[in-house]
């Protein structure tokens, strides 16, 4: 197998984690809520999915059913977190940053508890074949692109289309830009905020599930999800709040992450073991650079939603 092709596929596959995380965060932010709980929600999504798989992994159900139930588990767990976040920030109008950070701490902690009780041999083995569709026969490749990868791409493109091309998207953007105006023309601001936050959380939760079950498929995978959650939030700024752009950004991040493991395959670059940790730093350095570069922009369309981070209260004047 060609090293370059493997490198490419691995980067794409890795990037899908970020596609889920960023798309989920973009939807939430478009409703005017800065959800810093995304890393925790991704953790919870992964934990929820694995919990279900751990229960039914060896039950002998058809593979497709196991896959769907696993996805459902991830969605239920992460959307519950999203609902909690919405209740706190939309209904009770608690500070969004504090709520998000608390949720992240809570989510990653609870995930570690849950994951330590599960058996990797159960939750990882059962459904593997089904994720590998449609490249299931290519057993030689290190990582193949499975259905959850294509689902990520489809969700990102669909989210972009909904936001920019539909009435619902128009209303959602209005809610994030100027909730008072949206309220005045009869848009149910609270409902939009709740729904988008929960849907966004569900999408982000799938990212955590995808990373553990599909991309890494290893016992320790869950330990790094929180870090990727933070990178997903940074990617939102890189993508200028456009879900389809996250696909490109995620691929770039995927390349940066994969290069430290693939670089040893190229004999014309000599990397000592001591240098590899430096390479693993690359994504974080690039994140900082991206944040600096993307904050130097002056087009109004590329700014965050105008009321991002501000809780809406109708009687506030």
């Amino acid at each position: 197998m060609n090293v370059w092709l493997n490198f490419l596929i691995d980067s794409l596959a890795f990037g899908a984690t970020f596609v889920y995380g960023s798309t989920g965060e973009i939807l939430t932010e478009k409703a005017g809520h800065l959800n810093l709980g995304i890393p925790g929600i991704m953790c919870m999504g992964g934990a929820g999915g694995c919990l279900v798989l751990n229960m039914i992994g060896k039950s002998g159900l058809p593979g497709a059913v196991i896959v769907i139930l696993g996805i459902m588990g991830a969605l239920v767990m992460s959307m519950a977190c999203g609902l909690l976040y919405s209740f706190l920030t939309v209904t009770l109008r608690v500070n969004q940053n504090v709520t998000g950070l608390a949720l992240t701490t809570f989510g990653s902690g609870l995930m570690k508890v849950i994951m330590s009780k599960l058996k990797a041999t159960v939750y990882l083995t059962g459904p593997k074949f089904f994720y590998r569709w449609p490249f299931a026969d290519r057993q030689d490749s290190l990582h193949c692109l499975g259905i959850l990868f294509f689902l990520a791409i489809a969700i990102a493109i669909a989210a972009g289309w909904v936001l920019m091309r539909t009435r619902v998207g128009l209303h959602l953007r209005a809610v994030g830009e100027n909730p008072a105006t949206a309220d005045a023309v009869g848009i149910n601001v609270t409902r939009y905020k709740y729904l988008t936050t929960c849907i966004g959380s569900g999408i982000a939760g799938l990212g955590g599930f995808y990373y553990i079950i599909d991309y890494m498929a290893s016992q320790e995978a869950y330990l790094s999800i929180e870090a990727f959650g933070w990178l997903s939030i940074a990617l939102v700024i890189f993508a200028l709040w456009r879900p389809p752009v996250t696909i490109i950004g995620s691929f770039v991040f995927g390349v940066l992450f994969s290069c430290s493991s693939f670089i040893t395959h190229f004999d014309w670059i000599r990397v000592t073991m001591a240098n590899k940790p430096l390479l693993r730093m690359l994504p974080y350095v690039v994140t900082i650079l991206v944040l600096i570069i993307s904050s130097i922009r002056n087009k109004r369309e590329n700014q965050p939603p105008a009321s991002l981070g501000l809780n809406y209260f109708r009687e506030d004047r």
Binding site: L170, R173, A174, I187, R300, A306
Partner: peptide, 12 residues
């Protein structure tokens, strides 16, 4: 909504 066009605001 400042970021929207006239038509988008009208149809909102």
């Amino acid at each position: 909504v400042d970021l929207f066009t006239a038509a988008e605001n009208i149809v909102l």
